[in-house]
Design a protein around this nucleic acid. Sequence first.
DNA 1: CGTGTGACACGTA
DNA 2: TTACGTGCCACAC
Length: 110
Amino acid sequence: MAQQGRTGEHEVYIEAVLSLVEGVPVGRATTYGVLAGAVGHGGPRQVGRVMAVYGSSVPWWRVVRADGSLPLSHQCEALVHYREEGTPLRGRITDAASLRVDLDAVLWMP
DNA sequence: CGTGTGACACGTA
DNA sequence: TTACGTGCCACAC
């Protein structure tokens, strides 16, 4: 449709990241670096920033750090989703500091 | 226009 | 495994 006349690369980048996150299947997960490489521009930090601002509209919990650890202030919320989706975790639930997603089993790539 | 900060990544100890 | 330093890019002040 004839709208969005301004193809701002900034918005294109945001939509690209969000689109990829929405494409992550249930029970799986990916990393900021993978998404950054998928869009072919910027870096993992830029992806993280997009998630921090616009991530509220996408399954952000399926995006974790390269080592499988969770976002600093959202691991508790992510934990709830992981339990519902049956996402395999490593470490001990009693210690969120060492809690990580088993990327070796659920890593998803676009 | 320099400095600090961040939902990051990687190497090394 | 954790801790520290460095590189990266964008944004707030």
